[in-house]
């Protein structure tokens, strides 16, 4: 059985005129210990997916569909039961480690809170475990760090502390939302290495959310590309990057400048801009920017078509694999 199975996840946000779907029928699948990247631009719904999985969708949102973690439907759970799962079986790290840490509490205290909540540890045992966790994320001099305040740490060290806190509850699934976007590239490389090592060693599942295909390729086996609140293509990372099937995926991958290609040639671009929430076309969300769009694309939402082993894309113009 898969660790995580998301079916038809829809999140509708109230707006001035009615409601707008930030997520619209998202399906995701992750085996135990598997790694899945979610790529998209701002407004694609990738961060909303993470929040919905954590049960942290904004107040007032209407949520439909199914999120099964080890077969248990998270959407059917009450707030208290969800609190028990968050931190213990699901953990999340965010883009900005400075704002995710409480500036007036010492690092040790903040890790201790998680340990008290999910592991019933207190006093010396908690201190010892916190020290072990900081060692686990390869922070030097952990005993000294426990007494430090967040502002005394560098960006990379803060993100390591966040990861240590995520590990404190020994989660089955780690959700990382742009964890390295605010960091320098040399620091990013080290954090990604650490995340890979931890995922392999602890047997955790990983959902990595990023706008950067390089980060996804570095950390994930499978990828889902999102646009307009929908998954438009999914498959093994190497496959999708080499031969993207959906016109949006193709445009996005070609638009990335690659190191070592020099000044030769122009970058491919996607015409237009991402519409505002609630302003997507009625049919395929990409229809009005797609160079190949036909009439049917404007009218009808394309369903996911299988394109071979573990690959699928939602486009009217694709032939489904036999």
């Amino acid at each position: 059985m898969s660790l995580l199975a998301v079916r038809g996840l829809t999140v509708a946000l109230p707006t001035g005129e009615g409601e707008a779907r930030a997520l619209d029928g998202v399906d995701l699948e992750l085996a135990a210990g598997g790694t899945l990247g979610i790529v998209g631009e701002s407004g694609s719904g990738k961060s909303m997916t993470a929040l919905a999985l954590m049960g942290l969708a904004p107040a007032g949102a209407r949520i439909a569909g199914k999120i099964a973690l080890d077969g248990e439907d998270l959407l059917a759970l009450g707030e208290r039961e969800m609190d028990r799962i968050r931190g213990a079986r699901l953990a999340m790290i965010f883009q900005e480690p400075m704002t995710s840490l409480n500036p007036v509490h010492r690092v040790g205290q903040q890790i201790g809170e998680v340990l008290a909540l999910h592991r019933d540890l207190a006093g010396g045992a908690a201190r010892e475990e916190a020290r072990r966790l900081l060692e686990r994320v390869e922070l030097p001099r952990p005993a000294r760090l426990l007494r430090a305040y967040p502002h005394e740490l560098s960006g990379g060290q803060r993100q390591r502390v966040m990861i240590a806190m995520a590990l404190a509850g020994a989660p089955d699934l780690l959700i990382a939302d742009e964890p390295t976007t605010a960091l320098d590239v040399t620091v990013q490389e080290r954090i990604l290495t650490l995340i890979n090592d931890l995922v392999d060693a602890e047997g955790m599942g990983l959902i990595m959310i990023s706008h950067d295909f390089g980060v996804i390729a570095r950390t994930c086996e499978a990828v889902a590309i999102m646009y307009g609140g929908r998954v438009v293509e999914r498959g093994p990372v190497a496959d999708v990057l080499a031969r993207p099937a959906h016109p949006y995926a193709r445009g996005l991958i070609e638009a990335v400048p690659r190191l070592g290609r020099g000044r030769a040639g122009r970058l491919a671009t996607i015409a237009g801009a991402m519409p505002a929430l609630g302003a997507f076309p009625a049919g395929c969300p990409f229809a009005d920017r797609c160079p190949q769009a036909e009439e049917a694309c404007q009218l009808q939402v394309p369903a996911m078509r299988p394109l071979g082993p573990a690959r699928a894309a939602a486009c009217h113009l694709l032939e489904a694999a036999p």
Binding site: D184, T186, R190, D212, A217, R218, L241
Partner: peptide, 20 residues
């Protein structure tokens, strides 16, 4: 620089960069 061709395994011949 994370590269799209890389894959999860560390690229060959690159030693882990030193600590920030």
């Amino acid at each position: 620089v994370p590269r799209m061709e890389a894959g999860r395994a560390r690229r060959d011949g690159v030693a882990p960069p030193p600590a920030e």
